[in-house]
């Protein structure tokens, strides 16, 4: 019982130890140090850029844009490339039905 009372007294004392606490201030010339830091932040453009680029949100947005563009291009390509009419148009235009151009190589003496 006596031990518990002593412990309780110690706890109360610890809890009351900051009752008369005074406000702590930073070391002198804080404003000068702050100005130096602000100038450092302003001049270091690439550091700021790297901070923006390293954000997860930036990576997520970039990845989404790449995926959307890929999907869009892939869908467009399939609709154009696999249409039969287009294939025959290309074949006719390039004259793929004949092989007469090989004759140029085989000129008879």
């Amino acid at each position: 019982m006596n031990k518990m009372t002593t412990i309780q007294k110690k706890v109360d004392d610890a809890m009351d130890s900051i009752l008369d606490i005074r406000r702590a201030d930073p070391n002198p010339f804080f404003y000068t140090r702050l100005q130096a830091r602000i100038k450092g932040v302003e001049s270091n453009f690439w550091e700021r850029m790297s901070r923006v680029v390293s954000r997860p949100a930036f990576a997520f947005i970039t990845l989404s844009v790449v995926l959307i563009l890929n999907t869009f291009v892939a869908l467009n390509e399939t609709s154009v490339a696999f249409s039969k009419a287009n294939i025959s148009d290309v074949a006719t235009a390039d004259d793929l039905g004949t092989n007469a151009f090989y004759d140029i190589e085989n000129v008879q003496p």
């Binding site: 110690k10 004392d13 900051i18 008369d20 406000r23 702590a24």
Partner: peptide, 14 residues
């Protein structure tokens, strides 16, 4: 640093 000298030890635990 704002804690009075008498209370420093007790405040450390707090």
């Amino acid at each position: 640093p704002g804690v009075s000298l008498d209370n420093k030890e007790k405040a450390k635990e707090l």
